[in-house]
Design a protein around this nucleic acid. Structure first.
Length: 222
DNA sequence: ATCCCGAGGG
DNA sequence: CCCTCTGGAT
């Protein structure tokens, strides 16, 4: 077993990877439905270990009824649960979303605080969710490391660490500044539609020739 | 390290 | 059937 170290990657290769992703996806954005910072945080929190398609299915009805902390808090856990019961981990999420709404009302004037410390202090909001919100709203460029970013980064040799936090740090070292704001979306979307977990669609991949994990290389290595 | 936890795809 | 999906709290 020849152990080829993929990390750190060659800067020119990294530049070319993002240049091509930029060509294929010029204006990447989240596929979660939201109308304001509150529905954004809510949707992202609900998306933990769930597909955004499934989350959107639930939030379409939910946000029509509750798109503010006040309305959400008024629903209560009992009122909220039916809307999100189709989403995984829904009991925790219901409890967190109601508690979050109450805190927003009591401590933040009914507004979503747009800084990392206050966001991560909210129930159900960790580093990953906060990063998505801050990046999506243009507050600060952040790379939220979810299952897609983790997998794609490893395959491309953009990271080799074994935890999301370490992978995030490696990506900040490796990804050029000018690609940073959109890098998160590109890695996600590439992972969701092309570099999928089970049978990556390398035939349809625009960066397969730049990928250390592409099938021919893996075969040659074995 | 472990729990939470449903839908969709293969 | 098993795996995956924009994790967080304990």
């Amino acid at each position: 077993m020849v152990s080829v170290s993929r990390f750190p990657p060659d800067p020119d290769r990294v530049e070319e990877i993002f240049a091509r992703l930029a060509r294929v996806m010029p204006e990447p954005k989240t596929e979660l439905n939201f109308t304001n910072p509150f529905t954004l945080v809510s949707a992202v929190a609900l998306s933990a270990q769930a597909t955004d398609v499934g989350v959107n299915k639930a939030t379409t009805a939910l946000f029509a009824v509750a798109d503010t902390p006040q309305k959400m808090a008024a629903l209560g856990v009992e009122g909220l649960t039916p809307y999100i019961a189709s989403i995984g981990l829904y009991r925790n999420k219901a409890k967190n979303l109601i508690a979050m709404s109450q805190i927003l009302i009591e401590r933040h004037g009914g507004e979503v605080p747009l800084n990392r410390a206050d966001l991560q202090a909210l129930p159900g909001v960790g580093r990953k969710t906060a990063s998505v919100v801050l990046n999506e709203l243009g507050i600060e460029p952040a790379i939220a490391v979810d299952t897609h970013v983790f997998r794609v980064s490893h395959r491309l040799g953009l990271a080799n660490a074994n935890t999301p936090d370490k992978v995030e740090a490696q990506l900040h070292q490796v990804v050029p500044e000018h690609w940073l704001p959109k890098a998160h979306h590109w890695l996600i979307l590439h992972g969701r539609y092309t570099c999928v977990a089970r049978r990556p669609k390398c035939e349809a991949c625009v960066i397969s020739d730049l990928c250390p994990a592409r099938p021919d290389l893996m075969a040659a290595r074995a």
